[in-house]
Simulated scan of single mutants.
Amino acid sequence: MADQRDNILPSRRGVLLAAGALATGLIDMPGIAAQPPVDDAPLAAFVYEAIVTLGPAEEIGMTPHGQRVRIPITGGTFKGPRISGTIFPEGMDWQLVRADGFTELEAVYLMRETDGTVIQIRNKGIAGKGYAKTTATFEVPNGPHGWLNEAMFAGTVGPVPEMQTPAVRIRMYKLV
Rank of each mutant, 00 (worst) to 15 (best):
M1Q: 06
M1W: 08
A2Y: 08
Q4S: 12
D6E: 14
P10Q: 06
R12V: 15
R12L: 15
R12H: 14
G14T: 08
G14I: 06
G14H: 05
G14A: 09
L16M: 09
T24K: 08
G25R: 05
M29R: 07
M29S: 13
A33Y: 10
A34E: 15
Q35W: 11
P36S: 09
P37S: 06
D39K: 02
D39C: 02
A44D: 04
A44Y: 00
A45K: 05
F46T: 11
E49S: 06
A50L: 02
A50P: 03
I51E: 07
T53D: 03
P56R: 09
E58T: 08
G61W: 00
P64H: 00
H65F: 07
G66T: 01
Q67Y: 00
V69H: 09
R70S: 10
P72N: 06
I73G: 04
I83K: 03
G85L: 04
T86I: 05
T86F: 03
T86M: 05
D93W: 08
D93S: 11
Q95F: 02
L96E: 00
L96M: 08
R98Q: 06
G101N: 01
G101W: 02
F102S: 06
F102K: 06
E104M: 14
E106A: 15
A107S: 15
D115Y: 07
Q120C: 09
R122H: 07
N123I: 04
K124C: 11
K129Q: 07
K133I: 11
K133V: 09
K133H: 02
T134I: 12
N142Y: 13
H145S: 11
G146V: 13
E150D: 14
M152P: 01
A154T: 03
T156K: 13
G158Q: 14
G158T: 12
V160R: 03
P161M: 14
E162A: 15
V168S: 10
R171H: 06
